[in-house]
């Protein structure tokens, strides 16, 4: 319950207009800080829903694959330049962002992550590594302004953000591949 409240307070805090305006004023903070924090808010609230609707999660998310697919779809959707633009200009899309990221990405991630095998977890991270590298390349290389609301330089910075995150994920994958926990644990 405490975690649920923490997640809810985080979500409400992120939705407050001054906070949202500040975070959305910079492209990379919009995508790489506000959006992940919304997912984290949902992740915190997830346990409440798991307890409230155990049957639903065990029936529809038995091995965690539907949940992680939903997570990937929602994350993929919010990586598109067009959707960020719309969130800034169309209120209903902004509202959808504040609902979809916590409840359709954060909550399923919470339920799915523990159910996934180690390989599936690594495939998911590997998938995001590829996507992040591709998106990074796109945002750095694109000479045209991809979002009406952000400058070309902003999208290049976002591109570098994608690349550095991809590097971090590669480091993690190499770490899991090279280090055998059974030697230590």
């Amino acid at each position: 319950m405490n975690l649920f409240l923490f997640g809810l307070v985080l979500l409400i805090g992120l939705m407050l207009p001054p906070v949202a305006n500040l975070m959305e004023s910079v492209m990379i903070i919009h995508m790489h800080m506000q959006m992940p924090m919304l997912v984290i808010a949902g992740f915190f609230m997830g346990q409440f829903f798991q307890r409230r609707f155990p049957h639903f999660f065990s029936k529809y998310n038995q091995e965690g694959i539907p949940g992680i697919l939903l997570f990937i779809i929602i994350m993929g959707y919010w990586m598109l330049p067009r959707t960020m633009d719309e969130a800034l200009t169309v209120n209903s899309v902004e509202l959808f962002k504040f609902i979809s990221l916590p409840f359709l990405a954060g909550v399923p991630l919470r339920d799915s992550w523990k159910k996934l095998s180690k390989n599936r977890k690594n495939y998911t991270i590997g998938f995001f590594t590829v996507i992040f590298s591709g998106m990074g390349w796109l945002y750095i290389q694109a000479n045209d302004q991809l979002c009406n609301n952000y400058l070309v330089v902003d999208q290049m910075i976002l591109g570098w953000g994608f690349i550095t995150m991809a590097i971090c994920m590669v480091i993690y994958l190499v770490y899991t591949a090279v280090v055998d926990p059974s030697l230590y644990e």
Partner: peptide
């Protein structure tokens, strides 16, 4: 740690 560093530094350093 690396993730936090990259999130914090990419924007100002790229700028």
């Amino acid at each position: 740690m690396l993730l936090v560093v990259s999130m914090a530094y990419v924007l100002p350093i790229a700028d």
